[in-house]
């Protein structure tokens, strides 16, 4: 592992505003993501979680407001290969093998292709025996493993996960949740993830931001007081159950507010 890697950045959003036509998705939105931590964004469908993630990734630009990643712009971080993103659908290139997809990330990030590291990483994410298989012949879970490997091979300082395990079955999902996070946690990476699953949010993150229905506001900021690495048994601990109750209550509060607002119209 290269010693010259910069420390993970914090992410500071100030008065971010984003609308699509008439729809206000983010109306002055303020939040700070701490460096080196994993923060989960939960909230009702369409509340702006993914939009926020895309703004951080520089895939979209805010209409106004400021966004700084360790003092830099998203573009600068992207350009330096310091960022990686994974989507619900693995978005692998169907014409490249698992190995080829991971190698492409290095190429795109202007890093030398390190075949030894690629093979090692693919083996670590559990794809032993499938390194030369194309995505079409991989199971959903295996594709996500490959997608995560593609994210990690460039050793990003900032990792963005947009429901990365959303498309796989419950059992695989839990397995991935146990096996994969230690890989990026050991690297010291700032991670922002979007998820629909409260359980997954608690299980994978250090902090949970519960967002309100559109336009998004932070309804609740929950710190997850569980140690690392996480294990299945932790789901029975009081800290887990407390967090679950707090997050669920916040989500219900948000839904009640939305209903009231609709009734008032």
């Amino acid at each position: 592992m290269a010693p010259d890697r910069a420390p993970p950045p914090d992410i500071v959003c100030r008065a971010l505003d984003k609308r699509f036509g008439d729809v206000e998705v983010l109306a002055p939105f303020d939040v700070t993501f701490e460096a080196g931590k994993t923060t989960a964004l939960v909230g009702p469908s369409g509340c702006g979680k993914s939009t926020l993630l895309r703004l951080i990734a520089g895939l979209d630009t805010a209409d106004s407001g400021e966004l700084s990643i360790g003092g830099q712009t998203a573009d600068a971080v992207r350009g330096a290969g310091g960022l990686a993103i994974a989507f619900q659908d693995a978005s692998l290139l169907p014409w490249r093998t698992a190995r080829g997809n991971v190698a492409l990330a290095q190429r795109l990030a202007r890093q030398p292709v390190d075949r030894v590291a690629i093979d090692a990483l693919l083996n670590r994410v559990g794809l032993t025996g499938f390194l030369d298989t194309r995505p079409g012949a991989l199971s959903g879970g295996m594709r996500q493993r490959a997608a995560i490997a593609r994210c990690l091979i460039t050793r990003p300082r900032l990792l963005l996960l947009d429901e990365p395990f959303g498309a796989v079955d419950e059992l695989t999902r839990r397995q991935l949740g146990l096996e994969l996070p230690p890989l990026w946690r050991s690297e010291g990476t700032t991670t922002v993830m979007v998820t629909h699953s409260v359980t997954e949010a608690i299980f994978l993150s250090d902090r949970i931001l519960v967002l309100s229905p559109r336009p998004a506001r932070v309804l609740e900021d929950v710190e997850v007081r569980l140690g690392h690495p996480r294990a299945s048994e932790m789901m029975e601990q009081a800290e887990f159950i407390d967090a679950f109750k707090t997050v669920t209550a916040a989500l219900e509060r948000g839904e009640a507010q939305r209903q009231n607002a609709l009734a008032a119209q």
Binding site: A57, S91, L93, L104
Partner: peptide, 25 residues
């Protein structure tokens, strides 16, 4: 396919490299 173009974008791949690695294939 999928969000491959976004993946390209997240590496600031630019027009040419997006063309060669994603669009052309």
């Amino acid at each position: 396919p999928g969000q491959v173009l976004d993946v390209m974008d997240s590496y600031a791949a630019g027009r040419w490299r997006t063309l060669i690695y994603a669009r052309l294939p």
